[in-house]
Simulated scan of single mutants.
Amino acid sequence: MDQPIVNREAARTADSPPTGGVPEDPELWAFLRALRPGERLSGAVVAIRRFGVFVALDDGPAHPVYPGVGFIAIPDLSWRRFESASEVVGIGQRVTGEFLYFDSWNGEARLSLRALESDPFQQFADDVPEGAEVAGTVTKVVPFGFFVRVADGVEGLVWREELSVAPTERPQEAVQVGDTVKVTVMRIERDQCRLLLSRSQ
């Protein structure tokens, strides 16, 4: 489907192509307009940027400006949390993604790797009931509590008030990143993909 967008991730750095829209290339536009949402497209990763990943597709013409016709935005790379796109894919890696839409501003096929994976949060919600006790790893400590990874791609928050320590104690005095802790599942919010936990006594 032809779906114009207003300038991709606005903040581009010096190593990025200039924005402003890509001049229409008849062969490329014909290829992109023939694609349908849900199709699977394969290719090789040719460039990794802070705003996403470019993929040289197996089929179709080359892009006149960008490294590849396929483009995967950061949120569409994976369900799991990561700091850099290079933690998920590497240059030269073969990937298959689901076609989302034709980005007519940049002349690209927007792809998603995540769309072809099952949602780990929903799987966790199916398998683990509220009130269950699970083990996890502390991934981040903040003034209001700490985050615990309870499954691959699933993290929950233990509020400061839910710590099994004195209320005045700071979270960083109770746990450290990397600690293994037992927590109780207090609430699962499927729509928001939010998991609230309590430190088990």
Rank of each mutant, 00 (worst) to 15 (best):
P120A: 15
G156Y: 02
E155P: 11
L113S: 04
S42T: 02
G131D: 03
F121K: 14
R110N: 05
G90P: 01
Q201S: 13
G131H: 01
A132S: 06
L100F: 03
G145Q: 12
T180G: 09
S200H: 10
V134L: 00
A125F: 03
E98N: 09
F71Y: 13
L77N: 08
E24Y: 11
T139R: 01
L163R: 01
R81H: 00
Q3K: 14
D119Q: 13
V181S: 05
S86N: 11
D76P: 07
D126V: 06
P17L: 08
A56K: 08
F51A: 13
R94G: 01
D119I: 09
R94D: 04
A125Q: 10
L100C: 05
A85D: 07
L35V: 04
A125N: 09
A174R: 00
A174N: 06
G60W: 00
A30C: 10
G178H: 13
Q3H: 14
D76L: 07
L197H: 04
I72N: 03
T184E: 12
E173Q: 15
F51E: 09
V46I: 07
K182R: 15
G136K: 08
D76Q: 14
E162M: 08
T19G: 10
E161P: 07
E83W: 11
D152E: 15
G60I: 00
D191S: 15
E24K: 13
F121P: 11
V89E: 01
V95W: 10
W105C: 10
L28T: 03
P129D: 05
Q123P: 07
P143F: 14
S42K: 01
E83C: 03
P143H: 14
R40I: 04
Q93P: 08
G43H: 05
W29V: 14
E27Q: 12
F82D: 04
F146I: 06
F99L: 01
P37K: 04
Q201D: 09
G145N: 11
L163I: 02
G68C: 05
S198D: 12
E24N: 10
T180P: 08
F71E: 01
G107E: 14
F147W: 07
A47V: 03
L196Q: 07
T184A: 12
S200W: 10
V141T: 02
G38Y: 12
A73K: 11
G153Q: 00
L196E: 04
P23R: 08
R199W: 12
E155G: 12
L28V: 02
Q172C: 10
F71I: 00
